[in-house]
Structures are given as C-alpha cells and as structure tokens.
Design a protein around this nucleic acid. Structure first.
Length: 312
RNA sequence: GGUACCAUAGCUCAGCAGGUAGAGCAACGGACUGAAAAUCCGUGUGUCACUGGUUCGAUUCCAGUUGGUACCA
C-alpha cells in the first residue's frame, strides 16, 4: 500500500476529502472521536462565519463533540487564499502534534489540501488596486488584451496557460507586474518537507446516490433558512466569498431574475458539477484511498496501520 | 364515443418533399499554485412509440394499435 510522504515521524495527518455531500463531516467526526483528536477544516467556504447554512458547516452539536479549526474563523469581508492557509495550518499543526499523534483534516477544497500536504510557492498577495485595474481593462478589451499582456510579460506562461481562462491569465499578469519577473520563473512546484506522515482518504458514493444526497441537502438548506442568510449577506455580495454555489443562485432569485424553484434547481445543478470537479481533482492523486461514508471500520484500520508504520 | 393534432437524446424541441438524425439545457470526461464551492476546455449518450404496408431503401409516405393534448358530444 502507498503511504504518501510517510516516514518515521510518529505523527500522522489524516486527510478526509471527497466530493461535496459525500458525508465527510460525520465521517471525520467519528474518526476524530475514535482517535481522540481534533479536526482541521480544508473547506474554503466554511471559513466564513456569515456563511453557515449554504456551506453545510457542521452543526453546533457536531462542533461540540470534536474541536474544529478553520471553521467560521473569517468574515466574508476578509481576503484569504491557499498560501495563507498553508502558513496558518502548518503552524497550528505544529502545536496540535505536540499534544497528540493524529490530526484529521477534512474538506473538499483540493487546492487547499495540496497546500497543506506539500505546500504552494511563496508569491506576493495580489494588489487589489492592480487587480481592479486589470479587471477593468479586461472588461473593456476582452481576452485579447489579457493574451497580449501575458505574452509581453511572460512568454513561457503564455505558451502554457489556457488562453480562454481570464482568471489564470490575470493571475500571471498580476504577479509578473508586481514582482517585475515573469510569473512562470517564480514557480518552483517543489514538494515541501512535512514533519508528519499523511494518510489520504477520499469518500464517494455511486453517482445517483450522491446526486440524491445533493438534492435533499439543498432542499434542507432552504428549509433551514438559506434565503434569509443570503438576504443578510446582500451588502457583501461583491466579495469573492459570495461567489459561491447556493449564494449566487439565491441572489438571482432576490433580484427577480428567476423563481425560487428555479434557483433551487440551479443550486442542485451547480452543486452536482462542483462535485464532479472535486472527483476529478482527487482522482488525479493516486495516494487516495477511496471509501464509502459507511466504511468507518476500514478507515480506522488504515489509520492504525499507518501509525504502526510511523512507529517503526 | 367522434374529430383534429402530436409521439425523435434524460428534458424542451428542430429536422428529413424517402438515403438510419441535431440544437439548447441536463449528463459525462478533463485542466487548474493566492478568486479554487472560483475559472476554463472537451464529448451526442438515440430501437426517431409499436405492428404491418408501399419502396432498392421508411424516422420521414399510408393503415392500424397504443399513449397524450385540444375541441365536439
């Protein structure tokens, strides 16, 4: 069996990943209780304390059972990214592993999990003014502008980047302008050293079952007051955090662009597609052990086995 | 019960004056190092309701059957 990144550290980080609505929250809590440890969230939307219903944050009852980190720790007005997460999470883990041998990391944000497991290159944060200005120029002149600009600043990135993807090009342009060096020359893509072993578990279900769970969970969110939550967030809708499945669609409803039923149907569709992208992302990483959310026993065994290897 | 219209992809529908079919959405596959629940790329998945008839050849024309819709009773 493959224990990615595993050496003789006697400390183990257990990743519980998988598509949205696959049952990660309950599964991670059971696992944490079994090993008397805590949970570190890797969910880029559950960070925001004002977004609880639409992001399926663990309930108060669940939060009382197991200590969670990186849940409701930010406001939607705050800027955040995967690099900051890496820095903060690694620092926190240092402290957590001082007291225990196992920590569970649970969430569906692949980029954040990667940042946690092997790091992300250290580059400057975007300058909001510059980003706004580039955004404006893009709106005015379209993709052609971004392509031209990127080609001038970084030919290597120009050759490698998807020239239909404005976000990618914007990012490369931004960094090149801020640093005065081509973006591509700053990327090292190195696997950073981690002083702990990593066991990767991903949950999934047969597609029709996953879709059914997505549908029922979306309906439940509406019953729990998603619309009211989104109304409260209206003043912040321009913030990146609100560019999220479940929120975008309710904004469209509140704007009178569609019926509530239509908005709910759109939420379900967008969630299904999100789940598919997650499955693609995690599927690329061959270190994952794929389990069903009912496979707690096999998961416990995997962890125990990994700990034995660690202890050698 | 009678008359008319309809039946094509998961859904809404186009099309073929006879040469086994295509759009949108959904779905599926993929990319992705600071917006990542974001952003972007790719792929038609089909007993053309059923049974006969005409024809070299029927999803297309004809008849019947079944199901649906509308109107008349």
């Amino acid at each position: 069996m493959s224990l990615h990144g595993m050496r003789n550290y006697q400390k183990l980080l257990v990743i519980v990943a998988g598509p949205t609505a696959s049952g990660k929250t309950d599964f991670a809590i059971e696992l944490a209780l079994r090993f008397q440890t805590c949970i570190l969230s890797c969910d880029s939307r559950q960070f925001y304390r004002e977004m609880r219903i639409g992001t399926a944050v663990p309930s108060d009852e669940q939060l009382a059972k197991v200590r969670h980190y990186f849940v409701a720790n930010l406001s939607v007005t705050e800027y955040y990214n995967a690099a900051r997460y890496e820095t903060e999470a690694i620092k926190l883990l240092e402290y957590l592993f001082w007291q225990r041998d196992v920590v569970i990391a649970c969430g569906g944000s692949g980029l954040y999990i990667d940042a946690l497991c092997h790091g992300i290159d250290h580059l400057p944060d975007p300058d909001p003014e510059l980003r706004k200005e580039l955004q404006r120029l893009y709106q005015e002149h379209g993709l052609v502008y971004l392509r031209q600009r990127l080609q001038e600043l970084d030919e290597v990135a120009y050759a490698r980047t998807d020239l239909n993807n404005p976000n990618r090009m914007l990012r490369a342009i931004e960094v090149s302008l801020v640093t005065g060096k081509p973006y591509s020359s700053l990327l090292r893509h190195e696997q950073k050293f981690r002083p702990f072993g990593i066991l990767k578990i991903a949950l999934n279900l047969p597609r029709p079952e996953l879709h059914d769970r997505i549908s029922r969970r979306s309906d439940q969110m509406i019953r729990d007051g998603l619309v009211e939550e989104v109304i409260r967030l209206q003043p912040f809708r321009e913030h990146t955090a609100l560019n999220t499945v479940g929120y975008k669609e309710i904004f469209a409803f509140l704007d009178g662009k569609m019926s509530l039923d239509q908005a709910i149907a759109n939420i379900k569709t967008a969630t299904r597609r999100y789940a598919r992208r997650q499955i693609t992302w995690f599927g690329k990483d061959k270190a994952y052990h794929w389990l069903s959310p009912s496979d707690l026993r096999p998961a416990v065994e995997l962890v125990e086995q990994a700990l034995k290897v660690e202890a050698i």
